[in-house]
Design a protein around this nucleic acid. Structure first.
Lengths: 192, 192, 192, 192
DNA sequence: TATGAATGAGGATTCATTCAT
DNA sequence: CATGAATGAATCCTCATTCAT
């Protein structure tokens, strides 16, 4: 009932994620995306006016998805501290399930390929994190540093760690690597 | 006196760094690099067999330069702790002086555009950092976590911070941002 | 009515034959072929993945056409001797009508430009000739020499003669030259 | 005393013959010729003003060499008939010793790459053959056909045969193939 | 003579995008 | 909605040739 929209659109986005992370933007012709998605080249341009729009869309959808995953995690905690722990763990879980999405964000977040408007829109999905940090500082258990800076450091360190962990083959090792990363990073920002 | 060798090679590398960080690999035709460097297109290919070789070379030279800057800083400290501080500060200083080089490394370090052999060669320049960390752990003042993981977290967090800082216009603010970042990051990895 | 398939492919092949025989492979840019054929450069590469594939295709189509012309001629004779005469005359007729095709084959048959697989495929179209010669030898009226050798000598001599004849302007002279060539060549291979 | 001219010129011509027959004109950059010849690119252009001049020169030298080999052979016979036999055998001998030179002539004699003046000059070296044939016709033992046509047929058939023979590995087989070819071809042009 | 760095016009090929069906 | 043939501007790279040393 709800999922009316042709599934071709999603098929194209799925194929794009794989191809872009494997071969980069430039290394991925639209014709190849269409072929892998099993549609005609013209069809791709029905759903996305240009290649850039396709890229932006994919970027935003991933940003949105990860943002809401983390926001859900935050809402499941009672204390602010607990919320931050939940968020960290949720990022680890989701990242290990979706390493390509993490890779995509890391690889291209500063890329000139992504339009700056998409860039800004994407970042907006994580505004709640800054708020969370701000609260933690007020409560005194987070060190008193610029919330934006804390958020930036935490997220870049954790995203990189997810990528490191994803390179391990044993899931137990993956989880261990991320657990340690979280400990290291959070230890840096809490008092005591 | 001594540096006879044609400077065109270096001119091409310099122009490439600016163009690549402004416009990305794909957005930078070799013809434009040649034009900006003030040489003929053929000359570019005289020094670099392909565009990819140019990219790899630039990547490796930057990795090498930054590696040796940090290594020099490390050698100027007496204690291991002092060495680590010096390295952190050196990264901040060099990064603020060469934000494009940081940007280049961040933007492309996982990029499919850079050959994996160049990737590996580049990483080798930072092996001494892992050793330094290992020593710190043995001495007891660094927390006992996998040295590779610590190095990865510190470097990704600091490089990101350099980029944040570089966006500030006031040099004083830039230095302050980086000072805070170093405090946050190091606090995460030392005991107590 | 039936030939729906875009005729652009054939247009490109036709233009190629003229240009290649006039200017050689190297002297014929793909852009010029496209222009003469009245299509966009991209279209040429839509039908032929590379310039070499275009060349191979043209070579093979000509070999196939000439092969089937000669085979048809052979099938129209009662005796083996008659078949051989028919084949010789058919080569003369077809050659005078299509001197460029003869020229193309002569000029490039051993050329490094044509892939060796195309080379072999092309030769296969004339296998029936060797069989014909073999029969003639068994019947006793052809001299007992290696059939392959006979075929090679006859065809190289006649093809060259077609080219000589084609240089004459008067069709009557052309026919006379070829009649004489056939007499000379066949006289060399028959007994008595 | 006599061989003053720098041997580099000859070295370049030697390298050219090998490269041109292996890779064709277009597939052989002047830089590669220079490298194989062990000289600088500039040196090549000291001896040959352009690439075309190099090609023409090589073509003419080969034509001249083969022409004089055949002319020498002709001069060693008493009767006209004997001369023709000697010429045929000399072509076979020289061809087997220099298959690349035969190949070069065959591959490129009609090529648009060779200037038409070089073409004509080259053919001039074989004028004596036409005279020889003309004499043979007058003497009555050669069939009365246009001498030019006879010469053309004989030479194209024999050159092709040399190439066929050269593909054989056993020298004995090579000689046998050529002996048979000569028998076939000459049988076509003599009376009786 | 000999060198080889430098040149830049030219050429094969790619690919985002359109549009008639 | 869907198709895929057609387009042609744009790009990477080659290579004959020059010239300062």
């Amino acid at each position: 009932m709800a999922e009316k929209q042709s599934n071709k659109r999603q098929t194209i986005l799925d194929a794009s994620l794989i191809l872009f992370t494997d071969r980069g933007f430039h290394g991925t012709p639209t014709s190849l995306i269409a072929k892998e998605a099993g549609v005609a080249t013209g069809t791709l341009f029905h759903y996305f006016k240009t290649k850039e729009e396709l890229i932006d869309t994919l970027y935003l959808e991933i940003k949105k998805e990860s943002g809401s995953v983390l926001e859900d995690a935050a809402s499941c905690g009672d204390s602010c501290r607990e919320k931050l722990d939940n968020v960290s763990n949720a990022l680890a879980d989701w990242g290990l399930d979706n390493p390509r999405k993490i890779y995509f964000m890391q690889q291209f977040c500063y890329s000139p390929y992504i339009s700056s408007t998409a860039q800004e829109e994407g970042v907006a999905n994580f505004a709640f994190l800054t708020d969370l940090i701000r609260t933690g500082i007020k409560e005194g258990w987070l060190r008193d540093y610029p919330p934006e800076l804390i958020r930036s450091i935490v997220s870049s360190a954790l995203m990189d760690s997810v990528l490191m962990a994803a390179r391990e083959s044993d899931p137990r090792v993956q989880r261990e690597v991320l657990k340690q990363s979280i400990e290291l990073v959070l230890h840096g920002i809490v008092n005591e």
